[in-house]
Amino acid sequence: MLEKMGSLTNNSTRIEGSDAPEDEISRSASDDTLNGDEHNEREQVESASIALPAHVAGSGTLDRLIDTARGYAEASTAENTNKAYAADWKHFTRWCRLKGTDPLPPSPEMVGLYMADLAASTGKTPALSVSTIERRLSGLSWNYSQRGFTLDRKDRHIATFLAGIKRKHARPPVQKEAILPEDIQAMVATLPYDLRGLRDRAILLIGYAGGLRRSEIVSLDVHKDDTPDSGGWVEIMEQGALLTLNAKTGWREVEVGRGSSDQTCPVNALEKWLHFAKIDFGPVFVRTSRDGKRALETRLSDKHVARLIKATVLKSGVRSDLPEAKRLAMFSGHSLRAGLASSAEVDERYVQKQLGHASAEMTRRYQRRRDRFRVNLTKAAGL
Rank of each mutant, 00 (worst) to 15 (best):
T13Y: 12
N35I: 01
G36H: 08
S28I: 13
S28R: 12
A20M: 01
N10Y: 05
N40G: 04
G17V: 02
T13N: 06
D23M: 08
E41G: 02
N35E: 05
L34M: 15
N40M: 05
D31M: 07
D37E: 11
I25A: 15
G36A: 10
I25D: 10
S28G: 06
G17R: 03
E16P: 00
H39Q: 07
R27C: 03
S28N: 12
T33A: 12
R14N: 13
S28Q: 11
D37C: 00
A29E: 06
R14D: 14
S26L: 12
E16D: 07
G17Y: 02
L34N: 14
D37P: 00
G36Q: 10
L34H: 10
I15D: 13
R14Y: 08
G17N: 06
S18Y: 05
P21W: 03
L34C: 14
T33S: 12
T33Q: 12
D19R: 00
N35Y: 03
T13Q: 06
S18I: 09
D23S: 12
I25H: 10
D32S: 13
H39I: 04
N10G: 09
E22G: 04
H39F: 08
R27G: 04
N10W: 06
S26G: 11
D19C: 00
I15T: 10
E41V: 02
S12Y: 07
E22N: 12
D31S: 15
E16A: 04
S12Q: 13
D23H: 13
E41I: 01
S12M: 09
D31K: 10
N10P: 04
N35S: 06
D32K: 09
N10S: 11
L8D: 08
D31L: 09
T33C: 07
D19W: 00
S30P: 11
N35D: 14
N40Y: 01
T9E: 08
S28L: 13
P21T: 02
R14S: 14
I25T: 06
S12V: 09
G36V: 00
N40K: 06
D31F: 14
P21E: 04
T9H: 06
A20F: 01
D23R: 11
E41H: 04
R27Q: 03
S28P: 03
N40S: 07
R27W: 03
S26P: 02
T9Y: 07
E41A: 07
S28E: 15
L8S: 11
G36R: 07
D23F: 14
L8E: 09
S28M: 09
R14F: 10
G36N: 09
E38L: 11
A20C: 04
E16N: 01
N10L: 10
R27L: 07
R14Q: 13
L8V: 05
D32Q: 11
N11D: 15
E24T: 00
D37F: 08
T13P: 00
A29T: 01
D32E: 09
E22I: 11
E24Y: 02
S18F: 05
H39R: 05
E22S: 10
D31R: 13
E41F: 03
T13C: 10
E41T: 03
D31Y: 14
D31N: 15
E22W: 05
I25Y: 12
P21N: 05
G36D: 11
R27F: 02
